[in-house]
Nucleic acid binder design. Structure first.
Lengths: 190, 190
DNA sequence: GCACTGCGAGTCAAGTTGTCTCATAGGATG
DNA sequence: CATCCTATGAGACAACTTGACTCGCAGTGC
């Protein structure tokens, strides 16, 4: 039996990750310390140090346990798929934990390389999936794109992200329709 | 002579604010502690406590010393004014300190009421100024708005903010043109 | 020069951080 | 069931941080 498969190891690991996530959501990234995590998780402080000698990687892994909004596999018509997916992202952004994770990510990534890697990965997935779906829609003649695939992610998710994290107001469907319309000229016969 | 006008008081205050700002930009909000600020500012630790018994208000005031991008007084044609102002905001967002302040604001405001007040104020100024300028442009017949004034700020600043803080990539002029076009139907004779 | 007061340096208790040790008990193996 | 292995909890520990307080000094206005 290796360490990784030991049930005791797994139990501690899960308890620590859950505690770290709860602390992040309740009190912010600064609350994720070895001591507070140990108390919350009901494990010894030494155990937290054994699993994660540094808090940053623990915070990254704890954040990764929060279900983040990603774009699902594209369906046609692309416009309907977009409306559905963006509405889903809007709903997710209303959740405290998604806001906490995304703003913590954007902030801590400025000074922590581990966080920056996670940020780049997160942004890359969204950009790539949206660009691929839109390229496909254009190839099928559903849209004549008004901007590059690279700019599409910023143009669609950007306004919702800003509304949710800076303005801290709900995302109305008019905003979603506006960003969809802003992508280019949609053909009517789809 | 009151305390506030005492040059010694002012000198300490400035040195502390500068040190706090430098620490924020170099190492993030967690680096802004009484001890580190005192060392950096070249003042005694007790002096920092005398001026700011708690670190959050110090952090807020230090952040307020960073020149943030705001929309300048509108000129006509509104489209030109917008292009100029958004380009200025884009340039500002490329600066490390503006990114640091805005992401710190979005993140810490989730758990700190002082920060949340500052965030609301910041967001409100941008939203109001943009809405006023666009309403005026519509009254003058320069644009037929495709969205509410309330959604205009998210639609224009959102994509640039997302590009700069989540994607961490430069803001190209195509993105700026795209957000301007997305606001509505611009008349050609202006 | 004189009175005032902000300041630096230092002290102190309480709490935190990171490391280490050791007895215990959970779990695999036979 | 007996045996071995090892993750764990409890605790000790030094180093450091935090927040509060004291006091002599020196910059400042009069």
């Amino acid at each position: 039996m290796t360490t990784e498969t030991d049930p005791r190891f797994q139990r501690s690991r899960e308890a620590i990750l859950n505690a770290a996530r709860e602390l992040l959501l309740e009190s912010g990234p600064t609350a994720v310390t070895h001591g507070q995590v140990a108390d919350r998780a009901g494990v010894g402080r030494a155990t937290v140090y054994r699993h994660w000698p540094r808090t940053e990687p623990l915070l990254v892994e704890a954040m990764a346990t929060v279900p983040m909004p990603f774009l699902d596999k594209p369906t046609t018509p692309t416009r309907e798929w977009l409306r559905r997916e963006l509405t889903a992202i809007a709903r997710q952004l209303e959740l405290d934990d998604v806001r906490a994770v995304s703003t913590t990510l954007a902030n801590t990534a400025l000074w922590d390389e581990t966080m920056n890697t996670y940020r780049a990965q997160f942004a890359g997935i969204l950009t790539d999936r949206l660009a691929a779906a839109l390229d496909d829609a254009q190839a099928r003649g559903e849209i004549s794109l008004g901007l590059t695939g690279r700019n599409a992610a910023a143009m669609t998710i950007g306004p919702m992200y800003y509304r949710s994290t800076i303005e801290r107001a709900p995302i109305d469907s008019a905003l979603i329709e506006a960003v969809i319309a802003a992508l280019g000229a949609w053909s009517t016969d789809h």
